[in-house]
Design a protein around this nucleic acid. Structure first.
Length: 278
DNA sequence: AGCTCAACCTGGCTGC
DNA sequence: TGCAGCCAGGTTGAGC
């Protein structure tokens, strides 16, 4: 379930266990993910220590002495810290051993990614996958009125719907398909409105909604962190209830009008035709 | 450059 | 019960 909040919660969950820890072994059980998992990792990583863990958009960046491990969870990926002796599950794809604990990428649909960025090839910011990402929603550059200005300027001249514009992550990163519907509901903006027609007041409301919705989701996910190291807990298992997503035909929680579902860019969008205006 | 859409892959659910 | 068909949290890359 990985949108930005799930990735952030995963980062918070694994960091205390593996930051400062040294890799003892890497096992690639099935390396046929989004891109092939580099076999070189099996020789390269053992002996190296996790210096820091950062998140950029929906990517997790594990910094080592010689470079960065880029992890992406795709549609169905989860990362768990487990006792090394714990038996492997079907769809466990890559295992990073740290002595008595292991970090495991579980990814049924194999849309995730495990890549290596050597420090020899330049700073991590120069990585081609990261370079095209928009601004972080919790950065100073997106705070307050700056966030609204980012959305306003990036959307000028764009004919795509605001739903697709926001989901693309070129202006601000981290809003996936679920939270996109939620943010537009919160901001009272019709998802089919062309991005280029967004008004400044709408951008102000949307920027606020993005920060607020993502922040609430992270807070809710944080409550599941206590049992991160065991085989049963599911990180990214949120109790925040949606106001629009997956509520087709159900009454809007504000005005009781039935929530509508449409398809935009091959993805479902849910909205209230009464509360959300073009 | 921007837009649309197929593709990657597997599992779960719906409906016949 | 079996099976075809559709849907699913992300992202790239091809072809206009």
């Amino acid at each position: 379930m990985p949108e930005l909040p799930e990735v952030e919660v995963t980062k918070l969950g694994i960091s205390p266990h593996i930051e400062g820890q040294r890799i003892s072994a890497v096992k690639i059980l099935d390396g046929r993910l989004r891109w092939p998992v580099p076999n070189a990792l099996v020789k390269l990583l053992p002996g190296q220590t996790v210096l820091a863990i950062q998140r950029r958009g929906k990517y997790l960046l594990l910094e080592f002495e010689k470079g960065y491990l880029l992890l992406h969870l795709g549609m169905t990926g989860t990362l768990r810290v487990l006792p090394s002796k714990e038996t492997l599950k079907p769809h466990d794809r890559v295992v990073f051993e740290f002595g008595r604990i292991s970090l495991r990428l579980h990814d049924p649909r194999k849309f995730g990614a495990v890549l290596w960025h050597s420090k020899k090839s330049g700073p991590i910011e120069s990585n081609s996958l990261l370079q095209k990402l928009g601004i972080e929603p919790f950065s100073a550059e997106f705070a307050g009125d700056l966030g609204a200005e980012v959305l306003y300027q990036h959307s000028r001249g764009r004919s795509v719907s605001v739903k697709q514009f926001l989901l693309a992550g070129q202006a601000v990163v981290g809003v996936g398909n679920i939270y996109c519907s939620e943010c537009l509901f919160d901001a009272g903006i019709h998802p089919a409105k062309p991005a280029g027609k967004l008004t400044r007041p709408q951008c102000i409301r949307l920027a606020h909604a993005v920060r607020s919705i993502l922040h609430k989701a992270i807070r809710a996910g944080g409550s599941t962190l206590s049992d991160f190291v065991n085989s049963d807990g599911e990180p990214g298992h949120f109790t925040v209830q949606s106001k629009a997503y997956d509520r087709k035909g159900l009454p809007c929680k504000v005005c009781k009008t039935p929530i509508q579902q449409i398809v935009q860019g091959q993805r479902s969008t849910y909205f209230c035709p009464q509360c959300q205006k073009r």
